[in-house]
Design a protein around this nucleic acid. Structure first.
Lengths: 253, 253
DNA sequence: TAAGATTTGTTCGTATGTATC
DNA sequence: GGATACATACGAACAAATCTT
């Protein structure tokens, strides 16, 4: 990989240098999740920097989800697998600065969700199918208030996140799950003059139930078709509402 | 926003608390990229913490790409838009821990790249078309060595990143660009007994040239079809090779 | 060119908190 | 409860970078 020699390297701060060396250290040894890193004192000696610098380096790695730290005896820093939650929060920060519309998200959902559904047909356990059914049937009556309607909307998105969690393809799973999370975080202002479309809602709900049935009987093409139809309906629903992306940071707890 | 009361909050470190408060501070005031944050000294006074704590908080935000820092008079910390490069590097860390195969990536590429191409038809400037042509024609002869072959492969992926950069949909653009970057970072071990398929290479190259032509004349469906075919060819090429994902961290410069 | 001002960068010593034994 | 082994936090001092005059 050619180092970009045109850019006059902005001078990397020492904490950053230390963080890089620790990453290299981990990769070279192919350390797995949970493996222990040298203690602060050892790093101070190893890298010839002060405690403050080492600590800043650790906070950098921690912020990226690469390490976790515990106090007390037997404590220290450990290699920490980046969780999907963390990755979603970090990526959401990027889109905070982008003009991302509902339509943009649905353009991808319509492509990816059907593919995901098709790949899951006949591959789910009884427990997984039951979990999906539980979510899909959680609201068996139309929403009585705008608050309840929003709750149902979020629950419906939970269904998709759950589904994504079962996918064999980690990239596909992440993309779908991320989109669901973004949509769930949106603030939806519904036009007051736009009546609540109960029929559209009922169709969306039965779609989810039909989908689980198709997955259970291993009908990949059926699942794909149902999901495609479901996405079109959901998009239509969002478009009818005055949905706006609420720009904010996701909390990366 | 319901605080999860079941989880016995793992006790948030002070630097993290400070980082959170600064994020809130920025969001509340809707500060834009480049806006100035309080100085170290001001934060020390404001939050009643030590200098080290403030600095650790700043490193956390910096690691996420949310702020940049400069020394000297007029220096300080500033709101810094998360760049696509940064976001890709952070996300790559997540997939470092996942079992992600070439096939997984191509499954999405086959869905997303044609859609991206179709959306670009008739919407590129002369300069953008020229830039694409320049990349596509950079190698007008078959590779003479494995090294050169790899170089061409990376250049071909550059073509796709460039294309993604022109897309109107930020989410679609990011996904496509990210996949190209992941593939470019792969280490490809070609089977020795697998002869270099010159015909397959030539077809891939002409695909890119044909694609630019289709984009220029505003032929969305033509562009989609060419890209679909191109993706299938590229996938076939990768499958014939013994491509393995080299697990490593992307440098988040 | 040089000196001074301003702001972050780094170090060191010390003290405190926390979990394990 | 006490000893131990860690990370966590504070404060003061000095170093380095960069802008202004």
């Amino acid at each position: 990989m050619p180092e970009d020699s045109t850019t006059p390297t902005p001078r990397r701060s020492r904490p950053l240098q230390v963080a890089d060396r620790i990453k290299d250290w981990v990769v070279e040894r192919d350390l797995k999740t949970g493996a222990r890193l040298p203690s602060e004192a050892e790093m101070i000696a190893q890298f010839g920097v002060s405690k403050g610098t080492v600590r800043e380096a650790m906070r950098i790695l921690e912020a990226q989800g690469l390490i976790v730290t515990r106090t007390g005896p037997g404590g220290g820093s450990f290699v920490g697998e980046v969780t999907a939650e963390k990755a979603k929060a970090l990526l959401a920060n990027y889109f905070y600065f982008q003009e991302l519309s509902i339509a943009d998200i649905y353009r991808l959902r319509k492509l990816l969700e059907p593919e995901l559904a098709a790949g899951l047909a006949g591959r789910l356990t009884a427990g997984q199918l039951a979990a999906l059914r539980e979510i899909a049937t959680r609201y068996d009556r139309p929403a009585a208030s705008p608050e309840e309607e929003r709750e149902q909307h979020v629950t419906s998105l939970r269904f998709h996140e759950q589904l994504a969690g079962y996918a064999a393809n980690p990239l596909l799973a992440f993309c779908v799950s991320f989109m669901a999370r973004m949509l769930a975080d949106l603030t939806v202002y519904r036009r007051l003059y736009e009546p609540h479309n109960e029929e559209l809602w009922a169709r969306g709900r039965s779609h989810q139930i039909d989908l689980v049935a198709a997955l259970e009987r291993g009908d990949a093409e059926g699942a794909r078709a149902i999901m495609r139809s479901h996405m079109e309906g959901a998009e239509d629903m969002m478009q009818r509402q005055e949905a706006r992306v609420m720009r904010r940071f996701m909390s990366a707890r």
